[in-house]
Design a protein around this nucleic acid. Structure first.
Lengths: 346, 346
DNA sequence: TTACCTTGCGAAAACGTTTTCGTGTTAAAA
DNA sequence: TTTTAACACGAAAACGTTTTCGCAAGGTAA
């Protein structure tokens, strides 16, 4: 087991100085061709590679970007990561991942951990917990220390930084418009509580679409799920709530759900209640998921282009890292959604 | 925008030496209580945190583990990562991720990149490309340089390192046994070509289960899908192959599929052919996926405990990193599978 | 008074680089 | 012969830590 070779060792073996070795390897004009050849041959033989940590310390940049997300076992986030990794790699960066697990504390700890020199900047999506508590001091502090942040999907306006978001409002309008065009008269929405910004926006899109078509929104057709029921572990509770919605509103003929799980669960209940999809009732979800495609019937959905979001976020961050000039010039990139029609709509 | 504060700056402000500051912060007995208090108060005020990169360089360890996986948009791998991250974090480590995208070259480049000081060790799953080419020099070199590797799921015996694997053979025997017990007489298997090691093992388990029950295997009930049809993009071709299987063997009353996609596609075809699930035909898949749970009918499946795999792999790696003693003592941990019964079986 | 011990702190090395600046040697120009 | 310039290389600083060692001042024991 031989340790990695260093400049110092090469220098000692070849009886030259460390500086000479360094310069020879970087093909400096200062060094004679003879010496260069000798050094380069030796370095190749021993497979010399500069130590990244030493370079990071010297250059005060790590060529690494930190990703903080609430959850990795989630198609949307996984796709975003893929996008980030793609452009990061292309531009010579590595990615290091921290999971907040939707917890404020873990988000803070992870960020503090990474901010102490390990990375050059963050790409992140805010945890639900943080959104609920509305405590953003860790973002401010990070930015204040000169470390750029790019937020995606779950962002918060009051923090001044680059952002990449989905046009949630327009996307959900698209979906609800579709349902209306398809003849639905009583469209329900299954959404989250308002403090989840995307939930709020999607609800707003739903309301605007109805209004645009002169339909009076009915509060009993709006089901706001509490966050705790969001996970896979509380499926039964979620099912119960949705079943109640359907039973109390038998005339529902269209459902817009703000995520895949809500949509699929709703379809399940509908089937249980002997409703035919899409004849009796039509469904549209909002997400970039696997489930939609393989569900029975397959689910019409508003696609968010998750990978594109990741790519854009990474580009924004690296641009900022490499151009010290446009310091305070923050952008918000809006990614257009796309309605993918499948079997759950007519 | 104030940069992060360093020991040197604190020393200058307080008019003491850097050593004194360092010792005071670590509560060294060498330093008087007066000075300690002064320094610690100042450090807290300016929120001093040691620079990770400098520590890494000094200690020659980064407290970071590198993960190399073929693909992140994949429930199984995402769950493994979650497991790794969980124990890594608990034990004070960060994780940095490289995606090989199933390519040999990207695997090599990513590993070389990270091996130059950025991480202390690897947790990885080998790309298909690498398995096909059977070129493992990058693993040997990494290990030779004193950097430990833990392989999971897709491993290769000839490389000497810690491993975490699923008992594929036993798992598929369990599945096929279940089908037999449930009364299936003509059980088909939908699997991959043999060079994918897990596919081979699962096929073997299928054959052994049949043999154990005195059932003669029929070659026309064994469908080996070429890898190219594996992706979501070639669903139609996959469907065609499966439809042909069903049409040529009308007596099939049980199907064991080595992954989720094959199983769901097969169920789709069965429905199309007006077969009732599970009355006419029963299905079992092999995976830790979301699809199984939410499919209609939901799919009975052999769970691999992906998260546990990740946890075990991380524990193995960190143990090795922190005990220089048992250098050459490599383990292979086998994770037991679990049959999760759902609606696709009686 | 001398010898010795304790206390409290600083200098310096080390981790592995890159880069600036200085310097000795040789050859060309004056 | 003297001056100058080009050439080839080395010393040292810097990035931010931790740690070993040395040392001065003051106190105590002989």
């Amino acid at each position: 087991m031989k340790r990695k070779i260093t400049l110092k060792q090469i220098a000692r073996e070849l009886d030259v100085s460390i500086s000479t070795v360094s310069k020879a390897l970087r093909n400096s004009a200062e060094i004679s061709d003879d010496t260069k050849q000798k050094v380069q041959a030796f370095a190749k033989l021993y497979n010399y590679r500069p130590n990244n940590i030493a370079l990071s310390l010297k250059n005060r940049k790590t060529k690494t970007i930190g990703i903080i997300i609430p959850e990795i076992v989630h198609y949307f986030f996984a796709k975003v990561i893929r996008g980030i990794e793609l452009v990061a790699n292309r531009r010579g960066y590595n990615v290091i991942i921290g999971l907040s697990n939707e917890s404020f504390n873990k988000e803070v700890i992870n960020m503090e951990m990474l901010a102490n020199g390990s990375i050059d900047g963050f790409v992140l999506s805010i945890s639900k917990d943080t959104l609920a508590q509305q405590d953003y001091h860790h973002f401010y502090e990070t930015i204040n220390q000169g470390m750029p942040i790019v937020m995606f999907d779950r962002v918060v306006n009051e923090v001044n930084c680059d952002k990449v978001i989905v046009d949630d409002l327009k996307g959900s309008k698209k979906a609800v418009n579709k349902l209306i065009e398809n003849g639905c008269k009583n469209i329900a929405i299954i959404t989250t509580k308002d403090y989840v910004s995307v939930g709020k926006l999607r609800t707003q899109g739903y309301l605007e679409a109805l209004e645009d078509h002169g339909i009076e929104p009915q509060s009993d057709l709006i089901l706001k799920i509490v966050e705790e029921l969001d996970s896979e572990d509380h499926l039964e509770d979620l099912e119960a709530e949705i079943e109640q919605l359907f039973k109390e509103n038998k005339k529902i003929d269209g459902v817009f759900a703000v995520n895949e799980l809500y949509a699929l669960t709703a379809m399940k209940i509908a089937r249980k209640l002997k409703k035919k999809i899409p004849e009796d009732i039509q469904f549209i979800g909002f997400t970039d998921g696997v489930l939609s495609k393989h569900a029975t019937p397959s689910l019409t959905t508003v696609s968010q282009h998750a990978q594109t979001m990741g790519e854009q976020a990474a580009e924004l961050l690296i641009d900022k890292l490499e151009n010290e000039d446009d310091e305070e010039n923050y952008q918000t990139v809006v990614i257009e959604t796309e309605l993918i029609e499948r079997e759950s709509t007519k």
